[in-house]
Design a protein around this nucleic acid. Structure first.
Lengths: 335, 335
DNA sequence: TTGTAGGCGTTATCAC
DNA sequence: GTGATAACGCCTACAA
């Protein structure tokens, strides 16, 4: 492959001029620029980005770390990050962490190794020693999305999960349900704890309490939605509605209910959170709380860019709005 | 950040020895290695991967280009690629192309710029001039997954879409259906044409023909499955089964049928292709043809690695098996 | 087993 | 406006 030297030789100028023509076109004479352009076309020259990156100490790339890619939330989020990154000439490296810190550490090494400028983290993994060493004394080039820890002063963007869940609970309570079950997520996750708290809050405001024996812990997967619902049914405690901490479990619940011959919403109302793509097309269509997933990704990437410019000045927290979407899976309890 | 020089100074050796200790541990004396290791720990040294990459002319990274990330097929595929890449110390850069060649070209430039060693393409985009220039005379460092063009001698891994679709059609025909509708995809895609061909083939073997006025073209999305089904219903030509070129459209079809008060499978049987994650949990559970999505990704990555070692010797085509999965969305037509 | 030194292809700082 | 030239940090003959 031709390099900058070849271009310089062919155009009869120095490599410095070629470099300038490429990076600061204003600084070279039009005629010179034309000659250079000609040579570039002639030789199919493509700048070596690695060399440039080494010299400039900047990769123009960020890592986006997600626990799993099997998740409609993840995809929309990644899409948002991609959109903004693309506009800004930044490359996105996808890291799937499976919530394992050893896998995440591999990616911190890429930051340490200058292959990436920072990381957007859609997962709650305690920054390891490595992460801290990567940054040295300076603030970690990490933006947190959704998951976050109290007291950590990392830039972050999220929704108000407590309020979102409370809105869902309020909707169910408003319909007149009193015996309400709940499919919760792994309580190690901040998000899950928040949604759980929101459910209780929303119910309490309506004078209701979440019965402890109508709560089943799942892991946010479709499968766990199915299994948890079966478990719930098998306990024999009657209920007329299920609050699900996310749509996937809600879809699983609807499936399980159908398998047991129960009608949604006549026999049991089901509500989720996320408004993932499939929610509108399930049978029946799922009532849920819509989260601005793509916008979260976009904001996270913007925060990352701001952060690169001014680590201290960058805004620390952005909270995006949610919205209840009423569809077919909820109705008042039938006498 | 400490660099290799600092380590060398601290350990009292030359930088060459440090480099060797890291890359070919066998070649340095244990005692020396220990000193070096100590210094590395002491200074929190992390090798600069960009510098190494420049020097070695290798990025240990591949681009994986997908048309959209909103697709369960995509996610499983990416997961497969990731699995193998991880084992081999290769990084995966995700590119979302939206099937636009200008976006894809951005990523060819990364290959030209040595930031990536090759590309795995899950999309049919005619390699542009740029792509060819990137490679120069040597074979393109590109592995094709699923989509492919005849006559192009690019390494590729795929399933036999014709057979998969034929199996689906045979299942429906075997159930006794005769008036059979079809939701097809965009015929610019090789995959779509193959599946279409497979449907016809499967039907013909059973002595049936696909009625042209019962075919509706969609774009593989949930939404288009819904709309196409409404369109189908509105045409007024009776049918008792729908062959869908993918699961997403099949799920859309099931939703649309339910909206119109039709029962699946009693009134209309629905079958898809892909066996995406949601297929097992729809209401009713979707009968479909299971594709080894993750395995496709894994093989594609292996092909990429082989290719890096021996561009000419690398296997050119791998075809992975599929399997019909009978669930609840199909049954014999009701009198 | 270790050290010396040249280069990978850019960019940026000086001069001119 | 343009040209020399010194980094950027590492790897790898080749020599010792």
């Amino acid at each position: 492959m031709a390099n900058i030297k070849d271009i310089a030789a062919m155009a009869g100028v120095s490599i410095a001029t070629v470099s300038r023509a490429l990076r600061q076109p204003g600084l070279v004479k039009d005629k010179t620029a034309a000659k250079i352009e000609e040579a570039i076309r002639e030789l199919d020259y493509k700048p070596n980005l690695v060399a440039a990156s080494l010299r400039r100490q900047k990769a123009d790339a960020v890592i986006i770390a997600v626990p799993s890619i099997h998740n409609p939330f993840t995809s929309s989020f990644v899409e948002g990050v991609e959109n903004v990154a693309r506009e800004n000439g930044t490359k996105v490296l996808l890291a799937i962490t499976e919530s394992r810190s050893d896998l995440l550490d591999r990616h911190y090494e890429m930051i340490a190794g200058k292959q990436a400028d920072g990381m957007i983290l859609l997962d709650l993994i305690e920054p390891s020693d490595l992460a801290r060493k990567v940054a040295g004394a300076s603030p970690l080039p990490i933006v947190l999305a959704c998951e976050y820890q109290d007291g950590k002063d990392q830039p972050r963007v999220r929704v108000n999960d407590v309020d979102a869940a409370a809105d869902a609970a309020a909707h169910i309570a408003g319909l007149g349900h009193t015996r309400i079950a709940c499919l919760s997520g792994p309580s190690v996750q901040r998000m899950s704890r928040d949604r759980q708290r929101g459910f209780r809050l929303g119910l309490r405001r309506a004078g209701l309490e979440l019965a402890e024996d109508l709560i089943v812990a799942g892991d946010y997967s479709l499968q766990s939605g199915v299994e948890s619902t079966f478990a719930l049914l098998d306990r024999g405690h009657p209920f007329t509605a299920i609050l699900c901490e996310n749509d996937e479990m809600a879809l699983g619940a609807i499936h399980a209910l159908a398998v047991r011959g129960l009608r949604v919403p006549q026999d049991v109302s089901v509500i989720g959170i996320d408004n993932m793509r499939f929610a509108a097309f399930s049978n029946p269509a799922l009532t849920t709380v819509s989260l601005p997933t793509t916008a979260i990704g976009e904001q996270a990437m913007r925060l990352m860019l701001d952060f690169a410019i001014d680590a201290d000045g960058a805004c620390r927290e952005i909270i995006l709005p949610h919205q209840l979407i009423k569809r077919e899976s909820t109705c008042p309890p039938q006498a």
